[in-house]
Amino acid sequence: MSAKEFFTPAEQARIEAAVREAESRTSGEIVPMLVDDSYDYPRSEILGAGLFALATATSLSWAFFGESLWHFLWLFALSYFPFKLLIRKLPNLKRRLIHPAEISEEVKERAIVAFLENGLHHTRDETGILILLSLFERRVYVLADRGINNAVAHDTWDGVVDTITRGMLQGDACSALCSAIETCGQLLQENFPVKTDDTDELPNLIID
């Protein structure tokens, strides 16, 4: 399911309302963001297709062509691109071909880029919070500006991530995200209460 289809229109409205409610009590900014993936991982398709094509060509050449090198080569070439396409079309298979550390780094990098591209580092009190949900990787990443990071414990965001992750696994990502937004709002309210001239500086939901 793509990012544009993951939340229904009613759920999107509910998330945006949760952000508005949380931000009504603080000068901080909370931006949930939903993306299809953080990276396309081309190496996983190349290596995976190569391994599957190698196994297929080896087995068929041994079984039918007496271990002929020439038959092995054309069998390998013939099967490589179908396997590459198959891996691309099967995200569960593709995900298994990627090292978890690479996934973690790519999701983190996507969060940093999104944070900068969407201007979360330009909020007045440096209190922007990005909540990134990356669907292919099944990962959640929370990135907060230094204003709020200097005021809360470093492991604070782990609880926010766990809340959303559990909700996604249980099939209720919308409620989990709204709960996480409320938690972020409470943290911001404690440290950065709303000001009389406060304005909504950033989008309440980004779907990319």
Rank of each mutant, 00 (worst) to 15 (best):
L93W: 14
H99P: 02
A111Q: 01
P91M: 12
K84L: 08
R110D: 00
I98Q: 01
L93K: 08
V107D: 05
A55S: 13
S61M: 07
S79E: 00
G128S: 12
E117H: 15
S104G: 06
E109M: 04
I112S: 07
S61R: 10
T123F: 15
R110S: 09
K89A: 06
F64W: 14
T127D: 07
Y80T: 06
E67D: 14
F72L: 02
S79T: 12
A114D: 00
H121G: 07
F83W: 11
L51S: 03
V113R: 07
L75F: 13
R95I: 03
L86E: 10
S61G: 00
P91N: 02
L120Y: 11
R96D: 03
P82H: 04
L60Q: 15
L120G: 03
H71L: 07
F83K: 09
L73D: 05
T58K: 03
H122N: 09
F81C: 01
E109I: 05
P82L: 03
K84S: 05
I112M: 10
E105I: 12
G119S: 07
A57N: 12
R110A: 14
L69Y: 10
L120T: 08
L73P: 07
F81M: 01
T123R: 04
A55M: 12
W62G: 11
I98R: 03
K84T: 02
H99C: 03
L120D: 11
E109G: 03
W62E: 12
A55L: 15
T56N: 06
W62S: 14
H121L: 06
R110T: 02
F76K: 04
T58C: 06
V107K: 09
A49N: 09
N118M: 08
L93S: 07
K108F: 14
L86A: 13
I129R: 00
E117Y: 02
S79W: 14
E67N: 15
E102G: 06
F81V: 01
P82V: 06
T58Y: 11
G66I: 04
A55W: 11
L69D: 01
L75Q: 11
K89V: 10
L85C: 02
F76I: 09
I103G: 09
G66H: 11
N118K: 13
L90S: 04
L116S: 11
T127P: 07
L78E: 13
T58L: 10
G119D: 14
L116Y: 13
V107S: 04
E106W: 14
W74G: 01
G66C: 07
A57Y: 10
K84C: 07
L51A: 08
L75W: 09
I103C: 08
I103D: 02
T127E: 04
R124W: 03
I112T: 13
R124C: 03
P91L: 08
K84W: 11
H122I: 09
H71G: 01
T58P: 08
L90I: 06
